[in-house]
Amino acid sequence: MTTMAPESDIRRQELAGFLRSRRERITPEQVGLVRGRRRRTPGLRREEVAQLSAVGVTWYTWLEQARDIQVSPQVLDALARALLLDRSERSHLFALSGATDPAPGTECPSVTPALRTLLEQLEPIPACVQNSRYDILAYNRTYGRLLCDLDALPPEDRNCMILAFTDADWRASVVDLPEVNRTMAAKFRASMAGHLAEPAWKALLKRLETESAEFREVWERHEVVNQGGRTKYIRNAEVGLLHVEHTNLWLGPGSGPRLVSYPPADAVTRERLERLWSLAAAEPPSYGTMGE
C-alpha cells in the first residue's frame, strides 16, 4: 500500500525547491553585492538572501529545508523583492505558502525605470522585455505596433506563444509562419524543462493545447532548440515587409528575463521602421507593462 504525503508536506517541499532555484539564478552583482574570490555557490548564498530580506539566516535556511514554520505575507513580500521575482513567480510564492499577497499589483523588478528609458531610447528599433515563458513584460512603441497592436490586448494575452498560435494579426505578420512557430514551440519546450511543476507554466501549456490544434501537433514532436538570434522577415500591416535581426540580451541568467530587439538588416527596413515609429509616436506613449 502506498502512503501519500500530506498536501502541506508537498507544498513545503515545492516551496523549498522554488526558493533554492530562484536564489541560485541571481548573481551577487544583480543585487549590489561583491562576488569575492572564494564563491562556490551558484547564485546567492542563503545568508545573503536573509540579509537582503531582513530575516534570520536560520529561519530562511529552515524554509529551504521544508521545515514546518509559519511565514507572514510581509516576509514573503520581502523575499519576493530580494529574489527579483516577476509577477507570475511572486504569485507562485504566495500560492505555495498559502498566503494572500498584500501587493498583488507589484511590478516585475526586472523592468526598472532605467530599462524603460533604454526601451524608449532604442526607438525606432522595436524592443521588448520577455521572460523565459515568453510573457511580454514591457515594450516600446515601435514593438507595440510591429506584429499586432499590443496596446489593444489584455495583459494576460501579451505572450508570444499565445499570440503566435492564436492571434490573427500576429500570425499574418510572420513570414514562414509554420517554421517560425515550430521553432518557437521547440524553444518553449527547452525553457519549460526547469519549470515543469510551476502552475504558471502548466496553465500556459494547457491554454495553448486547448486553443491551438497547430500547437498540439508541433508539441507532440518533442523538439528542443536553445535560445538564439536569427534574421527574420516580418510583414507589417502599416509599412510593409521588414528584414530584421532578432537579438537577445539577457538581463540575468539564461533562464531569466531578456531584452529582445529587432535592428534593421538593410536600409529599406530602417526607413520603414522609422515610419512605423512615427505612426506610433503620434499616439500617447504606453511603454506597456504586464498588468497595466
Rank of each mutant, 00 (worst) to 15 (best):
R46T: 10
R90Q: 07
V239Q: 08
A185P: 03
P104D: 15
L241S: 13
I162Q: 09
L241Y: 06
L33C: 06
Q74T: 06
E123M: 12
D157P: 02
T183V: 07
E223F: 04
Q70F: 06
P102N: 06
Q13H: 10
H243Y: 11
I26A: 04
L163K: 00
L122C: 14
P109N: 07
Y60F: 10
P263S: 03
T61D: 13
I10W: 05
E223S: 05
V260W: 02
E245T: 07
T166G: 09
Y233P: 00
V175H: 06
A200N: 09
E107I: 06
F94G: 08
D9R: 11
A54I: 05
L83M: 11
S278K: 05
E274R: 14
R133Y: 04
S261W: 03
S72E: 14
V49P: 01
M4K: 15
S278I: 00
V244E: 01
G240V: 06
G254S: 10
I234Q: 01
R270M: 12
N248A: 11
R35D: 13
G228K: 11
R25E: 05
G240N: 14
A82T: 06
R20M: 04
L63T: 00
S132P: 09
G288L: 02
V244Y: 01
A193Y: 09
N181Y: 12
E271G: 09
A200Q: 07
V180Q: 06
P253R: 07
V225H: 14
L279G: 14
P178M: 08
L76W: 01
P42L: 15
R272Y: 07
R258Y: 09
D157H: 12
A203V: 11
E89L: 09
Q74H: 13
R270E: 13
R221C: 07
Y60M: 02
C108K: 00
A267L: 10
S97N: 00
A80D: 04
E245H: 14
G252N: 09
Q65L: 08
T106E: 08
Q13Y: 15
M184D: 03
E220T: 07
E156H: 15
P257N: 09
P104C: 15
S212V: 08
L163H: 02
L19Q: 01
